[in-house]
């Protein structure tokens, strides 16, 4: 099934950019949400994006799978450039999984149907195969026993793990996380972060927007700090948490740490 991937094998070498942004601008009306964003993410890299609210972090990753349309600049995912062409967009969306702050599970479908829907409809996978894959993904996030339940019967942490499994079932090359723990009660954050850490260790390419500094320190290859729609500073976690260069970064870190 994985040879349905649109990405060439060249991108599989660690370090080659799988996500490529150049000069990306985004406006909401007259408000500029992204200003000249340049960024590359290599294969198997884990990038954590932090920054104050309203700084454009979410908008940034939502542009990568075209939930938001960028107004200027180039975004390439796996060598495919995002344009208005719906076929390009669908190609990219097939290869990028996304996890939302509010889970966005489909309330009218069981957990299993939530996870198998896209593989069956988009990848035309036989039901048996899709369900086996789904169970495998649910085991990966440690909730196979909830497969027959409906999302409304699960706790927030469980729902978010189902959402991760749902995205993984499409066997994407990249996973995007949009503040995956912000809507969770404190005691449920750990179970979701554990699943994400495991995912990172398995070699998944990830871009994670989060406020969880512990997660950033533990698994990030790079930390990107954004403010006012701009990328202010980029560095390794050590560099970032011990020796930040920019004033805005220092201010932000002093407020949250």
């Amino acid at each position: 099934m994985t040879n349905t991937s649109v990405f060439s094998d060249a991108t599989r070498v660690k370090g080659e950019p799988i996500i490529y942004l150049e000069g990306v601008d985004k406006y909401f009306g007259s408000f500029q949400a992204l200003k000249d964003i340049n960024m590359r993410v290599g294969h198997q890299e884990v990038v954590v994006v932090i920054g104050p609210s309203g700084s454009g972090k979410s908008t940034l990753i939502r542009c990568i799978n075209r939930l938001e349309k960028h107004d200027r600049g180039v975004i390439r995912v796996g060598g495919v450039e995002i344009s208005d062409d719906i076929r390009n967009i669908q190609e990219i969306r097939r290869e990028t999984g996304m996890v939302f702050q509010q889970f966005n599970l489909f309330p009218h479908l069981t957990v299993l149907d939530n996870v198998t829907l896209a593989p069956r409809e988009v990848r035309h996978m036989p039901r048996g195969e899709a369900e086996a894959l789904a169970m495998q993904m649910l085991e990966r996030v440690r909730i196979p026993e909830q497969a027959r339940k409906y999302p409304g019967q699960l706790s927030g942490g469980q729902q978010q793990r189902v959402a991760i499994a749902r995205a993984l079932a499409m066997q994407p090359q990249v996973m995007l996380f949009d503040e995956p723990t912000s809507a969770l009660d404190p005691e449920m954050i750990k179970e979701v972060l554990d699943a994400m850490v495991e995912l990172a260790k398995s070699g998944m390419t990830m871009i994670v927007v989060t406020h969880e500094m512990g997660f950033a320190r533990a698994v990030a290859d790079r930390v990107v700090f954004m403010s006012d729609g701009q990328i202010v500073e980029v560095g390794t976690p050590e560099h970032f948490f011990t020796n930040p260069q920019e004033d805005r970064t220092k201010l932000f870190l002093s407020q949250i740490l």
């Binding site: 370090g15 950019p17 960024m39 890299e45 200027r72 990328i231 980029v234 560095g235």
Partner: peptide, 23 residues
Amino acid sequence: MTLDDTRPAELLGPAPEPPPEED
């Protein structure tokens, strides 16, 4: 590990003005 990819804006040329509108 690829570090720092934020090139300074001037390398990309001046930003075209005015900003694109929604309408």
